[in-house]
Amino acid sequence: MSGVIVSPVAGYLPAQPPLPTPSPFSFSVASTRWSSRPPVQTASLLLRFLALLFSFGSAFSLVALPSTNSKLKKYPGLLYCFTANILSVIYAAYQIFKNICDIAHRGICISDKASDYISFFFDQLAGYVLVSASSVAVPSIKQMEIRSSVWNASVASVCLSFASFIVYVLAAFLSGYKLCKRIMW
């Protein structure tokens, strides 16, 4: 022998190239299970559902009481809050529908690039409209008699509207992340 010592284990193990680590943002066309989705898409769907729930609750609390309909005409701040929440419900329902279609058919409704830009813009717009509606409704609430049923419904509506605003802020961060990921990487 020439003085080189060879390990007996090295003779039995074939040299294997290292396996590539899959990206957490990769998508397998063959699989449509929830577990194969990136967490960003699942989080986006959850945020859209929460925005729909909070906005619907806010709008519903303003019109649930029979005496509230006349109060909406008397207080334009409450009418603006109601309108903003209805628009938020429509936008959240559209985003939920689009996300479910993306999960089922992988982006046939709108291209991913256009969808990222649209979501980023409209999430910020919806957040702005909701926070402005909440702030405009507060002076209307201060003019009402305290602890009446309309006052309670209006306070609940403003609280749910602000919660919807917080959800849209998180959705805007997520949309911004997806947009930056598309532009940068």
Score class of each variant (00 low, 15 high):
Q41L: 12
A64D: 10
S44E: 09
F49T: 14
A51L: 09
A51G: 15
A51V: 12
R48D: 15
V40N: 06
L46C: 11
P66C: 02
S55Q: 04
R48E: 12
S36K: 13
P66F: 01
L45P: 09
L45S: 15
F56Q: 08
S36M: 12
R37A: 14
R48N: 15
P38Q: 04
S36D: 01
L47T: 07
S55E: 10
R48T: 03
F49I: 12
Q41A: 14
A64P: 03
R48S: 14
P66L: 00
L53C: 09
F49A: 15
Q41E: 14
R37F: 01
L53M: 10
S35Q: 14
S58W: 04
L50H: 10
A59P: 11
A51H: 04
P38R: 05
L62I: 07
A51P: 06
F56K: 05
F56A: 13
A59D: 04
P66I: 00
W34S: 08
L52R: 03
P39R: 08
V40I: 09
L47G: 13
R48Y: 10
S61L: 02
L46M: 13
L62K: 05
A59W: 09
L45M: 12
F56H: 07
L45A: 15
S58Q: 04
A51R: 09
P39S: 11
A51N: 10
V63I: 00
T42Y: 02
W34E: 12
F60C: 03
S58G: 15
A59N: 03
L52V: 12
A43K: 07
S61F: 07
A43Y: 06
P38G: 14
A59F: 09
F56S: 15
S35G: 08
F49G: 14
A64E: 12
S44V: 07
A43V: 03
V40R: 00
R48V: 00
A51M: 09
A59Q: 05
